[in-house]
Design a protein around this nucleic acid. Structure first.
Lengths: 344, 344
DNA sequence: TTAAGATGCACAATCGATTGTGCAAAGGGG
DNA sequence: CCCCTTTGCACAATCGATTGTGCATCTTAA
């Protein structure tokens, strides 16, 4: 009964079944019957033929003709990372709601891969693009913006203020975290940083510095370690800091994965949390409250991040002009638990 | 200097720039110069023109003509869930390596949404589809398979053995988990189940039953609670079981989110883990080892799951015949930690 | 009865690439 | 010198939909 071939029904076949021309069939099905003076009898027979044949128009052909692909591109450094996955989801849902489909790609935290993926997406005539950029080179992205391709950067960004960017308020997040430690009496605080060249990392370092200056303390670069947002970096960095600077009483991990590494390192060094070492992390996660030492963290509103990015992109596509405001900051929230000991 | 309009360069413009016809330009650029007797001089001038104009062929037009979109579809119940995100990533990477792009969609754990998304993807002429199906209705998916659209089901599946399916070995995973509890002397074990109608859930229940029978114990349906794989369900189910059946000494959570809910419920009931209550969960996660009671769990090899699904799909597309073997089982692994107390 | 206007639909161009076919010009052999 | 082959490329159809235009037929009024 049902069509068992793999090629789909075309408008031409529908038109023949209804005994009309392709153009008439097209107009009948696209609701332009009135405007194009198609008799309702004809319209009905076309509709019936389409239903009977299970006609589904080729979006490919339609896109080619209309120059509207209804496709969005998304480039993320690691789709499997729950943080980016949450962003991907928000964009996907928002896109779907607006009739768009999402081409998802993974740059594997590699700038060249990112550039290649962006070109590939462009070749597919995407109407808009969300990127969480890797590295410090923004030229390939500026080029897109110059070509009038709606573009939104999310989570990470550049110093270039011309690109539409949605990020958490990393700087005040870091300030809040540091203040929490300082208020608890900590004075020698190790920083487990992530990818050094990323904007979030730099802004967080800046927040750390702000906080220290406000407290009249020096910023000691030797108290910073780490090179990535992953567990391994957190582990190595924590191990090194705790070994070279045993007077450290608290660690500030720039990601929850870094915190995980810190947990492992602390366990190996025989330092219990929070009694022998305090810990705070950027980026909350579901199990944070159930850890041996419920982890105090700065929570990013990832859903909000994704939603705002998606809305900015869709709005940009609709209006075909970039928004006036380029920089969007999503507030963070301190989740106060019990991984910090008051040693004041 | 660079093109600042948003419309891209067409082959026609390249051809004009090189002073040749569109067909010649096409052949020169697609490496068919030799075969189509294009002089190397002409080929060079076309290539140069293309480079100068930054020509990038429209994949839309190419797809329409060649009937090859190089597009894959992926439908997952919740893209933000790290488990599904990991699957999405593996598929994305494998696809990219083979020149395919991935259209990612989120069915929001809703069968009708899933069916709608699948149709939409079909309208985009995807060449293959990976679905983690929601619900028990497989008709819309069988239809696809009948239409010769390469299809792979992942994580979840149906009793229908004709659809290519890649899942963890849920049944033996559940057996392993139950045996771990039984070996530790537990006899009254509460089950926190996930979505009841899903295959993983049913297979896990089946594994539970196997294990109990082998131990000569009865399977008490009243010891099962829960309706979803999320935290809320785990919490409510655990609360109910621990209230109505206080003699329970151990819980088996069917997902890590369920386990999280159980953790919350146990805390509220004043039952410490593992001393007052043992816990084991299906599905490991990075922080499992750092919980107050390091959680023993059955770990699924999610990457493997995604990779196998991707390879099966790509192979199916290449050979244009479904594989002979339809069911693929990925082994699970017990991660023995310390959330189970030996009460033997 | 006939010209003007309304009605209903088909023809054909178009989007941007690919590809089968055909036609010149150049080259070679008898 | 002519015919035949090879070389080099252009023409045109095609993929499947959308859309401007034009042509019949029918209606209505003078």
């Amino acid at each position: 009964m049902s069509n068992s071939s793999n090629k789909s029904v075309t408008l031409k076949e529908v038109a023949e079944a209804a005994g009309v021309s392709v153009s008439t069939a097209s107009r009948a099905l696209s609701g332009k019957a009135e405007a194009c003076r198609i008799s309702s009898a004809t319209e009905q027979s076309v509709r019936e033929a389409a239903k009977k044949l299970q006609f589904s128009p080729s979006l490919l052909a339609r896109s080619l003709r209309s120059q509207q692909t209804k496709l969005l591109g998304v480039v993320l450094p690691n789709v499997a990372n729950p943080f980016f996955a949450a962003i991907a989801r928000e964009i996907t849902l928002a896109a779907e709601a607006d009739g768009y489909s999402v081409l998802l790609t993974d740059s594997q935290e590699n700038g060249e891969t990112e550039a290649r993926l962006v070109e590939q997406l462009q070749a597919r005539q995407i109407e808009g693009l969300v990127v969480c950029p890797v590295g410090m080179d923004e030229t390939h992205l500026c080029k897109l913006a110059n070509q009038k391709l709606p573009l939104v950067l999310v989570d990470r960004g550049f110093d270039n203020r011309d690109l539409v960017t949605v990020t958490s308020d990393h700087q005040s997040g870091a300030r809040i975290a540091m203040n929490e430690l300082l208020d608890a009496g900590h004075r020698t605080i190790g920083i487990l940083q992530g990818l050094p060249e990323t904007l979030p990392n730099r802004e967080r370092l800046s927040g750390v510095q702000d906080s220290l200056s406000a407290a009249g303390l020096d910023f000691d670069p030797m108290l910073i370690a780490g090179h990535h947002f992953d567990e391994a970096s957190g582990y190595q960095a924590a191990l090194r800091l705790l070994t070279t600077r045993p007077e450290i009483t608290a660690l500030f991990a720039f990601s929850n994965q870094n915190a995980l590494g810190a947990l492992r390192a602390a366990a190996e060094m025989g330092r219990a949390i929070p009694d022998d070492l305090s810990l705070i992390a950027f980026d909350d996660f579901p199990f944070a409250a159930y850890l041996a030492a419920p982890l105090t963290s700065v929570s990013q509103d990832v859903s909000q991040l994704g939603q705002v990015a998606a809305q900015l992109l869709l709005e940009q596509i609709r209006s075909s002009v970039p928004p006036e405001q380029k920089q969007y900051r999503i507030p963070v929230q301190l989740m106060r638990r019990s991984s910090i000991k008051n040693i004041g």
